[in-house]
Design a protein around this nucleic acid. Structure first.
Length: 183
DNA sequence: TGCACGATGAAC
DNA sequence: TTCATCGTGCAC
């Protein structure tokens, strides 16, 4: 599979979010390679986006978001789940794409519909925070076959506190895909 | 040093 | 609609 390079991530966040749909998330963990096809994502546009964690500025937690593109921002939510983001644009821009759901492709037995379940099923946890996705064991690759689909746009989930930003259509998913967390 | 609050998921 | 569960950020 063709691994995505730094240049893929160093672009407009909405473009990256849309193009991540259909790509393959690969994680080699203790000799087991797990692969999931990305079917749902959300774009977080930077410190001016009231729903983005980077709205807090550069802190210990948001350090990775402010760093270079192509790295994984993994954080714990509600004390029980992890969520994985891909950092986009240039260093300091503090934008990222949240991976919300994947379709099981290889060595995945648990459910993957939702950001928390996705990380649990693919064994993604805090240890992978700040991990470079231009690597051998944790990366995203282009689809091995040509596949075309329609992209649906919806408001992001769980960000009602973000005022006008809550209604922006920044959640994208593959229309009709059964592995999407919410249609 | 303490505390309110989540980019969730599951049960009721 | 409620709750489990804990790291983070900020108030004090």
């Amino acid at each position: 599979m063709r691994k995505l390079g730094r240049a893929f991530y160093a672009r407009d966040t909405i473009v990256v979010a849309r193009e991540l749909l259909g790509k393959y998330l690969v994680h080699d963990s203790r000799g087991v390679q797990r692969v999931g096809r990305i079917v749902e994502v959300e774009a977080y546009l930077g410190p001016h986006d009231l729903a983005a964690h980077s709205v807090k500025g550069l802190t210990e937690r948001t350090r990775v978001m402010f760093g270079p593109p192509g790295h994984a921002y993994v954080y714990m939510i509600y004390g029980m789940y992890y969520c994985m983001n891909v950092v986009t644009e240039r260093t300091g821009h503090a934008s990222a794409v949240l991976l919300r759901a994947v379709e099981p492709v290889k060595n995945i037995t648990a459910r993957t519909q939702g950001p928390g379940l996705l990380c649990r099923a693919m064994r993604i946890d805090r240890r992978l925070n700040a991990h470079d996705l231009i690597s051998e064991t944790f990366y995203i690759a282009a689809s091995p076959q040509v596949d075309h689909f329609q992209i649906a746009k919806r408001p992001r989930i769980g960000v009602d506190y973000a005022g006008a930003w809550a209604s922006r259509l920044l959640r994208f998913y593959i229309r009709g895909n059964l592995c999407v967390s919410r249609a």
